[in-house]
């Protein structure tokens, strides 16, 4: 019986450049994991590879998610299976309103699951409740996706999408970057509300203050040169705060 999410000896490259060099990681249902590491260590690559971004090529290893071979699935199949990525730089979709976008996304999932499309009233209700909790106005839902929003607003809207779609596995890529203190709190509370024994989180961040106060992880992994070089509990963040990544990078080379 494999774990809930099991990444084994994963190798991946962008163009000709290998980024992940034998990364292994296991996450169980209901857990919150944090990935830290210096720039270029492969953090964002990992999140893109897990979601199937076609710009990244997997050259070895395996990923299983709830018993399925994730690497054989298309981007949208993975999404429909419950994987969600909160993008570090959310993409603009001119002319497409957030509510239309969410309607398409929800119905695509429901169709894949053999369920009926959500009626307009239930859809609006679902949207409104989650919008309120994250301080998102009706006007923001009518505006085109990520067009003309501040960095912080975009990130908040990523959390909003996560709340609407209710995925099983949430990857947050540098969610706290570009956000002010209040926005980080709102987003953090959004994550906390969504915690459940069936849902897991993988959070990529440099910001130990944010991680301690808002994320409260169960496990911390340190990435260097495309591999996990150290694992532990929340206390590992203290080492980072004190000594930085230098020690870990040395281990990666060795």
């Amino acid at each position: 019986m494999s774990a809930w999410l099991e990444i084994k000896d994963l190798h991946a490259k962008v163009g000709d450049k290998p980024i992940l060099n034998g990364l292994s990681l296991t996450i169980d249902a209901g857990e919150t994991h944090v990935i830290m590491g210096p720039n270029g260590s492969g953090k964002s690559t990992l999140s893109n590879v897990l979601c199937g971004n076609p710009n990244y090529e997997v050259t070895g290893g395996s990923v299983s998610f709830k018993g399925q071979n994730l690497l054989e699935m298309s981007v949208e199949e993975r999404a429909r299976a419950g994987i969600f990525l909160a993008f570090q730089s959310p993409i603009e979709l001119p002319g497409v309103s957030m509510s239309t976008f969410m309607k398409y996304a929800l119905n695509a999932r429901r169709k894949a699951a053999g369920e009926k499309e959500l009626d307009a009233v239930s859809f609006m209700k679902r949207i409104k409740v989650r919008a309120q909790a994250l301080d998102i106005t009706d006007e923001m839902l009518k505006r085109p996706v990520n067009v003309g929003f501040s960095g912080g607003e975009k990130k908040r809207l990523e959390i909003f999408q996560m709340a609407v779609l209710e995925p099983d596995f949430c990857i947050l890529d540098e969610m706290d970057s570009g956000m002010d203190v209040d926005a980080v709190k709102v987003a953090g509370s959004g994550v906390q509300i969504m915690r459940s024994p069936e849902r897991s989180f993988l959070v990529i961040s440099h910001n130990t203050k944010f991680l301690r106060e808002q994320i409260k992880p169960d496990h911390v992994h340190i990435l260097a040169r495309g591999r996990v070089v150290a694992e532990g509990g929340a206390e590992l963040m203290d080492t980072i705060d004190r000594d930085g990544f230098a020690g870990f990078i040395k281990e990666a080379v060795a």
Binding site: V75, P90, I91, L93, G95, V96
Partner: peptide, 25 residues
């Protein structure tokens, strides 16, 4: 490619994504 990936990450098929983006356009 980024727009397509973003939409597909939310569960839309490539065709649905194109149709959504074109309608937005």
């Amino acid at each position: 490619d980024e727009q397509l990936f973003y939409c597909r990450q939310r569960g839309l098929s490539a065709e649905e994504a194109v149709s959504l983006i074109v309608n937005g356009f």
